[in-house]
Each structure stands twice: as C-alpha cells, then as structure tokens.
Computed example of a mutant assay.
Amino acid sequence: MSQIGNKLRMGFFATPEAQGEYIKQLLDFQGDCSVFDPTCGEGAILHQLTKGQREDITISTYGVEIDKGRALKAKEFLTHALHAPIESMVISNDVFSMVWLNPPYDFAMKNEDERADRKEYIELVRNTRYLAPNGVMVYVIPSYRFSDEKIARFLATHFDNVGILRFSDEDYDDFKQCYFIGTKKGGKFKEYNPKIFEFLTQMESEEFVKKNVTPINHLVGRHKWKVPTGRTEVKTFYTKLEGKDSYYTGIQNSKGFQAFMERSKPRTLELGGDPIINLANGQIALLLASGAINGLMGKGDNYHAVQGLEMVSKVTEEEKHINDDGSTTIKEVTRTKREISIKFITPQGLVRKLV
C-alpha cells in the first residue's frame, strides 16, 4: 500500500539516462555474475548498466516490479523480471554481485501500536542481505534522507570502499538525489566507521550537499568499483503471491481436479464375466427391458447385439364387486401395462424380436 501511495504523490521517475551512463563508467565487472533491482520499473537502468560490457562475460539481470505494466516492459530488457511486491519475494541471501537500490520514499504500513519505519531504511536492510560479500551496492535516495541516523549508521557499519556522490548539475536541481556506492563487508563482525556516519548525518543541509558532495560526473575516470564474479543463476527467486494466470494451469494439473473430472464423467453400465450371484429370468428381463445391458453380449457363436425395450400402456378393465345385499357393482379400473420387447441380431445377421 505504501508504494501505491507513493506513486500517487510522486509518480514514477526512472533514473535519468545521463546519470545511468555516469554510473556505468564507475563500474568494473570482473566476470560472470548477476545483478538485482528490487524496484526495477521498466528495467531500463539495469539494461543500461550491463549492456555493452565485456563480450567474454555473462551478466544476468534480475528485477521485481509492483506495477504490472512496467513489469511486462521489464521482461523485455531483463533476464528475469517478476510482477510482485518486493515484500512477497523469496530470494537467496549473499548471491548478487551488485544491487541497484532506488526504493520508494515513503513510510511502511504498520499497526497502530507500532512505529512506522521509512521504506528507504527497510529496503536497504532487506536488499543488503541479497548482496554477496564484496558485492557493490548502489543506493539512490533524496540527499536529505541520508541524514537519517538509522540509514547513516547502517551504511557506516556494513560497507567500505565508500563513495557519496550527487546527481550531476544538469539533473540535481530537479531530482535532489544522491548516490551511496560501497562494497559490502564480509564476516560477522563489521566495524562501524564514525567518519562516514558523521558525513551522512550532515546531508540534511542542502548547503552542505552542494558544497561537500561531489557531482558524479567529476569522479568518472578517477575511480571504479569492482563488481566481483559470482553466480549467473539464482535458484531461489520467486514470489509467495501467485499470479492469477498460474491458477488455471495449476488447478487443471492438480490430482484433486483430475479425480473430480473422472467422477463427473457419465457412467455406462458394463456387464461382463460371471455375475456375483445368479440372476433369475425375471431380473434378466428387467435388465434387458430397461436398456441396462444394451450392446454386445456373448462370445463366439453366441455373440449377439442385444437391445431391450420396455413398452408401457394404459389398460382399462371392469371389476365386479358383489355387495352384501347381493347386488353387483361394476367399476372401471385403469392399470398400467408393461410389456418387454427384446431385439437381437445373430452372428449370421438375422434380426429377431421377442415380445
């Protein structure tokens, strides 16, 4: 819900192409790997960053997008793109060589008695788990949001080889966004860097940002972040929320549905072999008359095509009743008359009818 609200208030803004080009020149892919964007939009930024890299390496691109239209577009540009909220995803930890993180700028929904955390912080923590040790995080948020103490402390603890940059001048005034680029630390113990924390917490001031945060284009050609070799296939990458399109096929292929269909089929009575108990002539006649044993019967010379038919008619009869005084009362009674007609064809082709 929070991301929907964010779209209503701010709309969808993809990273400008010029900014993507600057970032591309700051990345040095070392070999085969996979990269991830948890809010990938139409997939343009990952496509831009990985297109035209070294011909001898394979870079798989993974994206998640909550908007259906943009997710369909992303499927054209990315190796794997899913239409789902990132909160519903199940993804392997420590697997991607690079994560591009441009989260929604909003509060997450919480219960009345819980404190609502900012999405920028929640997504930073969540998606750092998916980044491999020594992998590169590119984190893009409004400049003043870096001053949030939780965000600043997390970045100062979990990353080294850090660069803090702002959009180049042609786009900064429109977007007011900055980049944090860093390498994820490995191991359980991660040393906190107070200098990074202090710098980030001062970014609430626009004056500080303009004076102390380097425009990204000024760093091009002076430094690069090495994106490490890693897996090109992420085996665990799916959403817990199944799309409606998959329901139909899933139901059709389920064992329960197949059993239901078998039980729903019209049944035909097939008689063959020896009956469980001997049948009286009257019972056989009823089976023939009702059509229950229409069809082919017997074997060899006794192989016949048999059809039974019950003919029902109304018959009126007079009943005489002698009264106590000796007089006679005549009463007409209508009864139902049932007759059995059986036709069969002999192996020689002769048609016989039994009435």
Rank of each mutant, 00 (worst) to 15 (best):
T329V: 13
M137Y: 06
M137G: 05
L49T: 02
V234M: 07
P16L: 00
R145W: 02
F154M: 07
R166C: 07
R153Y: 09
T39G: 12
A259L: 14
R54P: 00
G186I: 03
K150T: 11
K240P: 03
K343C: 14
V162K: 08
E242H: 10
G221H: 05
N127C: 10
S205R: 07
G250P: 07
D28A: 07
G298C: 03
K176N: 10
I57D: 11
A285Q: 12
D94R: 01
D117T: 04
I277R: 14
I216R: 01
L241M: 15
V306M: 12
L286I: 13
R153T: 13
D32W: 02
S313R: 15
I164P: 02
V220T: 08
S92M: 04
G308Q: 05
T39Q: 10
S205T: 07
F12P: 08
Y144Q: 14
F199W: 08
I293F: 10
F107W: 15
Y144D: 14
T346W: 07
Y172P: 04
G291Q: 02
P142K: 11
Q25F: 03
I196D: 03
P194E: 12
M297R: 14
L286F: 09
S97I: 13
L101G: 06
G272R: 15
C40F: 02
S254P: 13
D174E: 09
F175P: 04
P103N: 06
M203V: 04
C178K: 00
V64T: 06
A108Q: 14
I66M: 15
E114F: 08
R54K: 15
S2Y: 06
F154T: 03
K110D: 09
L26A: 06
D32K: 00
I293E: 06
T183V: 15
V95R: 08
D301T: 14
K314D: 15
V99K: 01
R222W: 02
L287A: 14
D94A: 14
H321W: 10
D325F: 10
L27D: 07
S205Y: 00
D106W: 09
I345C: 06
